[in-house]
């Protein structure tokens, strides 16, 4: 009898073979430990945000959100993200175009520099702008003379936010564009396309999922940044408080419902971010376009 033993190929793929599986007890124990850990550190905190926010009923929740200070915090957060994300988007695309499509000296040093903000504590990120633009900073006297306020004002918040979200998009795009190579672009140029035509018609469609991925992660951090913004904001109510700073202030005033009400908006933002992120990962998988970087 030659020929395949029946069923051998059917058994092997969908589930691992018996010899490489744990006993049922061990399996259940491991799943239990993992889920218990995730529940304690992720599940409970997430649920608690909403429970605390609604602990005194919907009415107080709505009222807390409609407070002028809360509203202006939401507005400022949106403004900051609306500046920081596009700025880092343009930078990310330019940097990855230069790095992925060309060979030049000092490239790996440049990549290291782009990663720098990830290695800097948020507090330090805020501090360096105070050192530059604060009252006693390098440009402090000059700014005061010309009546320009950067620190303890919106521009400082924007700058600090741009700094902490600086690498997000570039970091997503560089490995992606490197993996895709430059043959398609060369083909486009040899077919007569101009530089912008090549970029918009060939490059951009190829990186759209990676780009979107970077943008939503960048946006989540931009809207949620606390440490860096806290240092440069000055905490002026209704003026220089972003949502996370507003949460801190009302929390420290023991106004827990108000703090958790605004926090619940930020938690929703996080959930939406995770949702879109999973969607993008799924879409990228469907279209066969690899997404680099797990976070």
């Amino acid at each position: 009898m030659v020929g395949k033993p029946p069923g051998s190929t059917l058994m092997s793929t969908p589930q691992r073979r018996i010899s490489t599986r744990e006993s049922r007890g061990v399996t259940l124990l491991l799943i239990g430990v993992a889920l218990g850990y995730l529940l304690m550190f992720l599940g409970l905190p997430l649920v608690a945000v909403f429970v605390e926010a609604l602990s005194k009923g919907w009415e107080l929740y709505w009222k807390a959100l409609q407070e002028p200070d809360a509203l202006s915090a939401v507005k400022l957060t949106l403004i900051v993200a609306a500046i920081a994300v596009p700025a880092n988007l343009v930078f990310g695309v330019a940097a990855s175009w230069a790095i992925a499509k060309f060979d030049f000296k000092g490239k790996s040093l440049l990549i290291t520099f782009i990663d720098l903000p990830f290695a800097v504590s948020p507090v330090v990120s805020g501090l360096i702008y105070v050192l530059l633009f604060g009252a006693q900073g390098w440009f402090g006297p000059w700014l005061q003379e010309h009546d320009i306020k950067l620190i303890f004002a919106v521009p400082g918040i924007v700058l600090a936010t741009i700094f902490v979200t600086f690498p997000f998009i570039a970091r997503e795009l560089i490995p992606l564009m490197q993996a895709q190579g430059k043959e398609e672009e060369e083909a486009a140029v040899s077919l007569g396309a101009s530089g912008w035509q090549t970029f918009f018609r060939v490059t951009l469609p190829n990186i759209k999922w990676g780009l979107l991925y970077g943008v939503i992660l960048c946006n989540a951090r931009a809207m949620g940044e606390f440490g860096a913004v806290s240092v440069v904001s000055g905490h002026i109510r209704g003026m220089t408080n972003t949502m996370p700073l507003h949460v801190e202030i009302v929390y420290n005033e023991y106004n827990f419902v108000a703090a958790f009400a605004v926090a619940s908006l930020l938690a929703l933002l996080a959930l939406v971010t995770l949702g879109i992120k999973s969607l993008v990962e799924w879409q990228a998988k469907q279209s066969g376009e690899p997404l680099h970087g797990a976070h």
Partner: peptide, 12 residues
Amino acid sequence: GFVFQHYALFRH
């Protein structure tokens, strides 16, 4: 006209 080794077709 240039035909690339790995075709370089525009995948999208």
